[in-house]
């Protein structure tokens, strides 16, 4: 690496952290558990891959404590693709995050899909040069994560279900709360900040700009091209697809179809074309059938 020879440059700034997520916009980030899957994802047109040991559907099925992946496995994925590689750390587990940063991942997902390590605090993400993405179910949660240093937000949905209804609920909630802030007078923003449990300065910024200061992708339950386009039409900057691809009948074709649907999200003719002949979608679980302790979206606060 020769970058150290550049004088007066600065690395790890909020601009370059948030900037990488800006470059992923309009794209699909795919969960992969092996280097072979990572290649399939890259070949299908993924903008990034999420390296993890088990996709959420398997984490659900197998239970137990779920942790950061084996560094060897993450290395093998980093070495197999040229697109950015993300990896997950447990909520609040700043040492897992330090390890992932040392491995040279491009983004860390502080994720409720893994078992939380701290039920009070999230990671202080300002302490890292590597950018973080964090989940959120509502605007207050998103703003608290941004305050802690998150450079990208993903609405949580309910991972590993193939049921898009929670993803729908979370993006509608966040977008609705942003619209509601934008309609408030300055006088009303103090109470709005109190109700959102978020810093006033950030609340005021969003009331003025009408958008989050970072990119927001949607995650948790996207399993078909139509699901991906639905999220894009609702204003997502891009989508994460976890179990939906590699738990389906034909991962390579489904991955390509979801990538195309994310670009041409407003073109029903294209969506019809890419939805054909994909084989079995992942089987899925209705979120309403999940007992409350097994709902991942409720992790994080």
């Amino acid at each position: 690496m020769t970058s150290s020879s550049i004088p007066t440059s600065t690395t790890g700034t909020p601009l370059v952290k948030r900037g990488l997520a800006e470059m992923m916009k309009g794209g699909v980030i795919m969960d992969v558990v092996t280097a072979e899957q990572a290649k399939i994802a890259e070949d299908a047109g993924a903008v990034a891959v999420m390296a993890l040991e088990r996709v959420p559907a398997d984490i659900r099925a197998q239970g137990g404590v779920s942790r950061m992946s084996d560094p060897d496995m993450i290395d093998s994925i980093i070495n197999s693709v040229s697109i950015p590689v993300m990896a997950k750390a447990r909520i609040g587990h700043f040492v897992e995050a330090q390890i992932l940063e040392a491995l040279g991942v491009d983004y860390i997902d502080e994720s409720e899909v893994l078992s939380p390590a701290d039920y009070v605090n999230h990671i202080n993400k300002w302490n890292f040069k590597v950018p973080f993405v964090c989940g959120a179910t509502n605007l207050g949660e998103a703003l608290r994560r941004i305050t802690e240093g998150a450079a990208m937000i993903r609405s949580k949905g309910e991972a590993g279900t193939g049921d898009v209804s929670e993803a729908m609920k979370h993006i509608r909630t966040i977008s609705g709360q942003i619209r509601s802030l934008a309609s408030k007078s300055e006088d009303e923003l103090f109470v709005a900040a109190k109700e959102l449990q978020a810093p006033f300065e950030l609340v005021r910024e969003i009331a003025t700009t009408g958008k989050l200061p970072v990119t927001m992708f949607v995650a948790g339950g996207v399993a078909t091209p139509a699901d991906a386009a639905l999220m894009m039409q609702l204003g997502a900057d891009g989508v994460f697809v976890g179990s939906g691809i590699f738990k389906s009948g034909n991962p390579a074709e489904r991955a390509k179809a979801i990538v195309k649907a994310t670009t041409y999200f407003n073109d029903p003719a294209v969506l019809a074309q890419v939805s054909r002949g994909l084989g079995e979608a992942m089987v899925g679980i209705n979120v309403s059938d999940l007992p409350a302790p097994h709902r991942l979206a409720e992790r994080g606060w």
């Binding site: 690496m1 020769t2 970058s3 550049i6 007066t8 440059s9 600065t10 690395t11 790890g12 700034t13 601009l15 370059v16 952290k17 900037g19 990488l20 980093i78 040229s82 950015p84 590689v85 940063e101 040279g104 991942v105 491009d106 983004y107 040069k129 590597v130 950018p131």
Partner: peptide
């Protein structure tokens, strides 16, 4: 050359 400076940790700002 793609990613010529390395991974995201090597992304930077400069004048």
């Amino acid at each position: 050359r793609r990613n010529a400076f390395g991974n995201q940790l090597d992304s930077f700002e400069v004048d």
